[in-house]
Design a protein around this nucleic acid. Sequence first.
DNA 1: TATGAATGAGTCTTCATTCAT
DNA 2: CATGAATGAAGACTCATTCAT
Lengths: 203, 203, 203, 203
Amino acid sequence: MQCLKSDIRKGILTEAEKLFLNKGFQGTSMREIAQKSNVGLSNIYNYFHSKDDIYQEILMPVIRDLYHLFYTHHSGEQVTMDVFTSVEYRKRDVEDYMKLVEQHRVGLKLLLFYSQGSSLDSFREQLTDKMTVIIDNYFRAMKHKYPHLNVDISPFFLHLQISWTFTMLGELVTHRIEKEDLKRFITEYVSFGTAGWKELMDA
Amino acid sequence: MQCLKSDIRKGILTEAEKLFLNKGFQGTSMREIAQKSNVGLSNIYNYFHSKDDIYQEILMPVIRDLYHLFYTHHSGEQVTMDVFTSVEYRKRDVEDYMKLVEQHRVGLKLLLFYSQGSSLDSFREQLTDKMTVIIDNYFRAMKHKYPHLNVDISPFFLHLQISWTFTMLGELVTHRIEKEDLKRFITEYVSFGTAGWKELMDA
Amino acid sequence: MQCLKSDIRKGILTEAEKLFLNKGFQGTSMREIAQKSNVGLSNIYNYFHSKDDIYQEILMPVIRDLYHLFYTHHSGEQVTMDVFTSVEYRKRDVEDYMKLVEQHRVGLKLLLFYSQGSSLDSFREQLTDKMTVIIDNYFRAMKHKYPHLNVDISPFFLHLQISWTFTMLGELVTHRIEKEDLKRFITEYVSFGTAGWKELMDA
Amino acid sequence: MQCLKSDIRKGILTEAEKLFLNKGFQGTSMREIAQKSNVGLSNIYNYFHSKDDIYQEILMPVIRDLYHLFYTHHSGEQVTMDVFTSVEYRKRDVEDYMKLVEQHRVGLKLLLFYSQGSSLDSFREQLTDKMTVIIDNYFRAMKHKYPHLNVDISPFFLHLQISWTFTMLGELVTHRIEKEDLKRFITEYVSFGTAGWKELMDA
DNA sequence: TATGAATGAGTCTTCATTCAT
DNA sequence: CATGAATGAAGACTCATTCAT
């Protein structure tokens, strides 16, 4: 019985994903991956360079979408306060997060909680730092456009806000929220956030 | 050549702490701990039962203080809205966090980011769950006392808020904040939070 | 440099057998087995799951034949006193034992004397118990068929007789008996046994 | 709290005995002995030279009595056939065994089943060999005294008979026989044995 | 006598990866 | 592309015994 090359690849990735999710990156061995995916241990190396390679390939899509989401949200052409204080804007934001979570539940879980020991170990940290820079620039642009506003937010608070986004993603991913509760949560989240930002910026 | 028992114990703990901080619990081997602390590998077992034992001993103080902080903050005798919306209250809160961070910077870092594979692996998750229950009860009591208020916060949002607290601790611990920036950050943090809660509860 | 799988397997088994015979199961280390059989220590685990696995594989044939011998001797269709008191019957018995010993000298030695710490540790005890039950049933059947006979043997004496069989196997295995002495021994053994059983059963 | 030196010795021996009985000589560690007997690990070496030393000391009494029993039984001044064929003689024999078993149940168990890895590992084998020589001499003397008798027993059968004695001791020790069953067993045992020996010697 | 620290070789087993076929 | 053998270091932990105090 022969299989298509691509099938085997997928098989490996699928089983590896399950294992990583259960035991973490470090806790999963190549042997297990081989056994579960019915592939000879050494044969795996015909498809992937290393364990880390498998891990990266699994997480590539999430990372791509995550980057895309973050960058489009915060580096759009329009510099406006609405991004922070408009309920509409924030609702769109959080709905985008939800979509991401629905599409990449497992991947996000891996990325946020099970990457210890892999090259993506500090992915969250790095992305947070990058985002901080980007948003910081955004603030500078806003300060230029609306000089009377207080957009002088401390870098640390900014950083924290971004990190919180990851935390929220983590919570959404681990505690599967029911549809009926979802709307309410979003309302609360948006209310809380907009009120907070308004307070900070109008001051 | 023998040394004082307490000295060697401390030596082991010190070096182990450093290693755990660099390589995580799983990534650190007893061999390394032995080498760095100039103790025979097997001799370590005269001081500690296991690797996990060392880890727990290192984190015991943080855990104790963390529990104490959380429980005293949220199970005080007085049921009042101030806890959420009073600037004074929240300032006191965040200052307590700061103290915790200053005293247990490394320990918190380990606890929050480097415990994978140890028995404290899911400590954050567990404590978050416990706190959620406690605060939920607090809300029920408030609802009883102030019936006109909207204290009907969704469990998920509550959970998220608590998780955010850990995130903040994590950020404070990883990004050493300068003294001059500290005051500003606290102000921002408190403003944001109180505004948010007010918005939610007055609605 | 790779060799035929079967050769290496055999090599490991051969050397392990020697070592177990010299040092017992517990006293033999995987390192030694690896060294003596010119195989990398870790490579052994490509052929066997564990030390115990090796041990079991070595003893599988003896155990099989031992079971077969015992069961066929004592669960034959014919219920007759001859089994105990006929010289012919007993001669056939003891000759079967001899064959077993010749074919599995080393294996029997291991099984009877060197299994401490392995999963076959209590093999003799277990088999003795099983056999006791079987022969006890046999006696009941005989009692039914020959009511005038005294077949009311105490369970303990029965147990002892079976245990003696193992002892004899043990002796045959450790003290290689010369061909010329063999016939004589068998005669003595059979005479002694038949006389004994006759005495007990005719009483 | 200070203890008499002899008390500590006894404590160590007592606890060691229990452990050896549960886990065998090899399976018992000095650490365990120290813990169970409430003695500092290294302090044990003020009382005993080594683990083997403890083991020997525990088994000294059994060995002494065993030797004494065997030697008096078979090297008495009187050379007579009765030793083998007289019911009275054999009854006295087996009753002596019973006494030995009652006095040294644990010791015999250790000696026969749990000595692997210790210096007493091959005690049974050695004693069996010694006894074989002694009884062989006894037979020679009998041949001289009663030339018409067939006392030309093969060494191997002799050896087996002696080994059987140990087996019986082993059985008596592991399967605690009830008082009511004891008498019956002895009768069976003696009947069987005397009939067997008569058959062999009168032939 | 008693203690706790020290030792150094030892236990079985698993790891990710490579190699030859 | 696939296989199974090979590697060599590493994993946590235990051992009986000794030493200095």
